[in-house]
Nucleic acid binder design. Structure first.
Lengths: 120, 120
DNA sequence: CCTTGACCTAAACTAGCTTCAGGCCGGTAT
DNA sequence: ATACCGGCCTGAAGCTAGTTTAGGTCAAGG
C-alpha cells in the first residue's frame, strides 16, 4: 500500500506520516524498487491508531513510548493496556473541560441575546 | 488587580497573558507607577473568556478578530454573536470526533483484554 | 520525447506558547 | 544603610507538532 492510501485511511496527512516515521513512531517502513514506501495493512492500521491517540491529545513522546512497547512484542500488552487506560482518563478530563467551556460560551451567547432584546 | 491574579482567575499562565496582550487580543493594559500591569475586573473577565475560546480550539487570529469586534463597541454585538455561534458548531464537531476516537480506544482496550484472557 | 503526477529528501517556516537572561521596584531582615 | 527577596518587567531564544518549499527521481501516457 502506498503512502497516499495510508493517509486516506488514517486521516493523517502524507507529510505527517513521513514525519511520524522519522520521529520513531513506527519501525522504518520498507521501500519498493522505486524507493517509495510500501505499507502492510498492519502498518496502515497502526497509523490509524496513532491518529486516534493524537486526536485525543496524546503527545508525540508518549506515542513514541507506546510505539516502543508495541515494537517489543506481546509481553508488553499489559503496559500498553495501562498506558491506554491512563490516556482514556486524561481524555475524560479534557472532555469535561470542554463541556465546562461550552457552558460558558452558551452563557455568553445568552447575554448577547439579552442585549439585542433590550435594544430592539 | 495584578497579572498573577488574572492568571489565577482565568487559568492562563502569566506569560500567556503578556503574550496575548502583545498579540493584540486586548487593548493595551494600564500600568501602575511601578511599571506593572493593573487590570480592571472587566479586563480580567475578558481574559477568562479568551481562555474558554482558546480551550475550545479557537485560533489566535479568530480570537483577534473577536477582540477587534469587542473593541469596536456595542454595534458589533450581532457579529460577535454570529462568531460565537459558528465557533460553537465547530466545538460540536470536535466533541463528536473525540467521541469517535474514544470508541476506537475502547475497542483497542477490549482486544487487549481478550489477548490477556487467552494467554492466561 | 516530453510532460504529468505521485513520490522522495532536507530544510525552512508556522502557531502558540514557555523559558531564559538580565534588570527594576518595594518591602523586610540585619 | 544595605543586603536580599519575591514579583514584576523586557526581548530573545527554545520547544512541539507539524506544514510548506525547493529541488529531485521515477513510471506511465500522449
Amino acid at each position: 500500500m502506498k503512502i497516499s492510501e495510508v493517509a486516506e485511511r488514517s486521516g493523517l496527512s502524507i507529510s505527517t506520516i513521513r514525519y511520524y516515521e522519522k520521529s520513531g513512531l513506527c519501525p522504518e517502513v520498507r521501500r519498493g524498487t522505486d524507493g517509495q514506501r510500501r505499507f502492510s495493512a498492519t502498518e496502515a492500521e497502526w497509523f490509524s491508531l496513532l491518529a486516534s491517540l493524537r486526536a485525543t491529545g496524546m503527545s508525540l513522546s508518549d506515542m513514541r513510548a507506546f510505539a516502543n512497547l508495541y515494537a517489543s512484542g506481546h509481553e508488553t500488552v499489559p503496559q500498553r493496556k495501562a498506558a491506554l487506560l491512563a490516556h482514556r482518563e486524561n481524555l475524560d478530563g479534557r472532555q469535561a473541560e470542554l463541556d465546562r467551556c461550552r457552558v460558558i460560551l452558551d452563557r455568553k451567547l445568552q447575554t448577547y441575546d439579552e442585549v439585542l432584546e433590550n435594544r430592539k
